[in-house]
């Protein structure tokens, strides 16, 4: 595929209000690669939180408001495996038998998770301008299994000369976030993130990098909470922010 001149950026609701720097870094990476990035101002959420909680009518209303944001036939880039997965894998079910099913399917067909777009469409070449650092990658379950982009994040990181990638035990195991699962089954979620943070700490990584801010909110939040007993954990950071920090020219 020839790289497009323009793309839409769907920042996701989580990033919009909680991790805007991750979203902005994603947009800057794309702009640095010569792409015109459009950030539709009416965007809100893909509907996933309600869909995964069984509230499909509510999810549909919200997803419906989002499809109006991407009218032109250009790619929609999403800095999240889970939100991209919602659009690509679950919108068909959510919009089944609805008048706008076709519009939803059309948008899904041109939706990309950020690292997927950077690798598969742009074939992005990176030059590492940063200091040596040891990192671990936590690939979200949706990035891994719904979007199949576990290798994409690693291939981008592999281009960075001064970055050492270390492997945590049980890397592919879920961190325990799961959206409302973290609230509804708080103690199981707590036990899961405990295991995840333990295995990440054991690597000695200075940072934990992921394609999904949901996982980072969970893992990073747990590191913070544990700080008193176990000391400060690795810094958690979205892949876009990490890549931007290490590659942009003013570095």
């Amino acid at each position: 595929m020839k790289p497009p001149e323009r793309v839409y950026f769907f920042g996701t609701c989580l990033i919009d209000m909680l991790y805007p720097k991750a979203g902005l870094a994603g947009m800057q990476l794309l702009r640095q690669a010569g792409i015109k990035v459009i950030y539709p101002k009416d965007q809100t959420c893909c509907g996933q939180p309600a869909f995964n909680s069984g509230y499909r009518d509510e999810a549909l209303s919200v997803a419906r408001s989002l499809i109006k944001c991407f009218p032109q036939n250009i790619p929609v880039v999403v800095p999240s495996g889970s939100c991209a997965g919602m659009i690509k894998q679950h919108w068909a079910e959510l919009f089944a038998d609805q008048v706008d099913a076709e519009a939803a399917a059309e948008i899904a067909s041109r939706t990309y998770e950020l690292t997927q777009f950077l690798v598969d469409v742009l074939d992005l070449k990176l030059k590492d301008l940063g200091k040596p650092v040891k990192i671990a990658v936590h690939t979200s379950c949706s990035a891994r299994r719904e979007m199949g982009v576990a290798e994409h994040i690693e291939s981008l990181l592999g281009q960075l000369d001064a970055v050492e990638l270390v492997q945590q035990e049980r890397k592919a195991e879920c961190c325990g976030f799961g959206g409302t699962f973290a609230i509804k089954q708080a103690d199981i979620s707590g036990a899961m993130v405990q295991d995840k943070t333990t295995s990440l700490r054991a690597t000695g990584a200075e940072r934990v990098i992921s394609q999904d801010c949901g996982c980072l909110m969970n893992i990073g939040g747990a590191f913070d909470k544990q700080a008193q007993d176990k000391g400060k954990g690795p810094v958690t950071q979205h892949i876009a922010e990490f890549l931007w920090e290490r590659t942009h020219a003013s570095n």
């Binding site: 950026f9 920042g11 990033i15 919009d16 209000m17 805007p20 720097k21 979203g23 902005l24 947009m27 800057q28 702009r31 015109k36 990035v37 459009i38 950030y39 539709p40 101002k41």
Partner: peptide, 15 residues
């Protein structure tokens, strides 16, 4: 500040 605000501030188009 939200991403929407940062995007506007950094000169990204919204349509």
């Amino acid at each position: 500040r939200s991403l929407q605000e940062l995007a506007q501030q950094e000169g990204f188009d919204h349509e």
